[in-house]
Computed example of a mutant assay.
Amino acid sequence: MTHQYRAYLVGENGVFRSAEAFEATSDDSALAFARQFTRHGKVEVWQLGRKIAVLDAAQSWPSPPRQSRSTLTRQ
């Protein structure tokens, strides 16, 4: 079952600059989806009238870990 969410991009003056409506199966999956918008600034995530979280740009996903190179392969 999915629920309706919105991610609001918040301007420096605290006013919503834009919004993205989307569906997610849980609050956690909604937050994971909304993190992509933090590259543009602070994002508020709402499910109807319930504020889920405020995500700062610093909370965006970290870079994936680098794969280590294997040294020599024995034959």
Rank of each mutant, 00 (worst) to 15 (best):
H3T: 01
H3E: 13
Q4G: 11
Q4Y: 01
Q4H: 03
Q4M: 12
R6V: 10
R6Y: 05
A7N: 05
A7C: 03
A7Q: 04
Y8A: 04
L9D: 03
L9W: 01
L9E: 01
V10E: 00
V10Q: 07
G11L: 03
E12A: 12
E12G: 04
N13S: 06
N13Q: 09
G14E: 04
G14S: 03
V15I: 04
V15K: 10
V15L: 02
F16P: 00
R17Q: 11
A19N: 00
A19C: 03
A19W: 03
A19H: 01
E20C: 02
E20N: 04
F22Q: 04
E23A: 02
T25L: 09
S26H: 02
S26D: 06
S26L: 07
S26T: 04
D27Q: 02
D27A: 01
D27S: 04
S29V: 09
L31S: 04
A32T: 15
A32M: 02
F33S: 05
F33C: 07
F33P: 00
A34E: 05
R35Q: 02
R35E: 01
Q36V: 10
Q36A: 10
R39E: 08
R39K: 10
R39G: 08
R39Q: 10
H40F: 14
H40I: 04
G41F: 00
G41Q: 03
K42Q: 06
K42T: 13
V43E: 02
E44T: 05
W46D: 01
L48T: 14
L48A: 09
L48E: 14
G49W: 14
K51W: 13
K51E: 14
K51Q: 15
I52V: 15
A53K: 13
A53E: 09
V54H: 03
V54S: 12
V54A: 05
L55P: 09
A57R: 15
Q59V: 08
Q59D: 14
S60A: 15
S60Y: 11
W61K: 14
W61D: 13
P62G: 10
S63I: 08
P64T: 10
P65H: 04
R66D: 11
R66V: 09
R66L: 12
Q67E: 05
S70R: 12
T71F: 02
L72H: 15
L72V: 12
L72R: 15
L72Y: 15
Q75W: 12
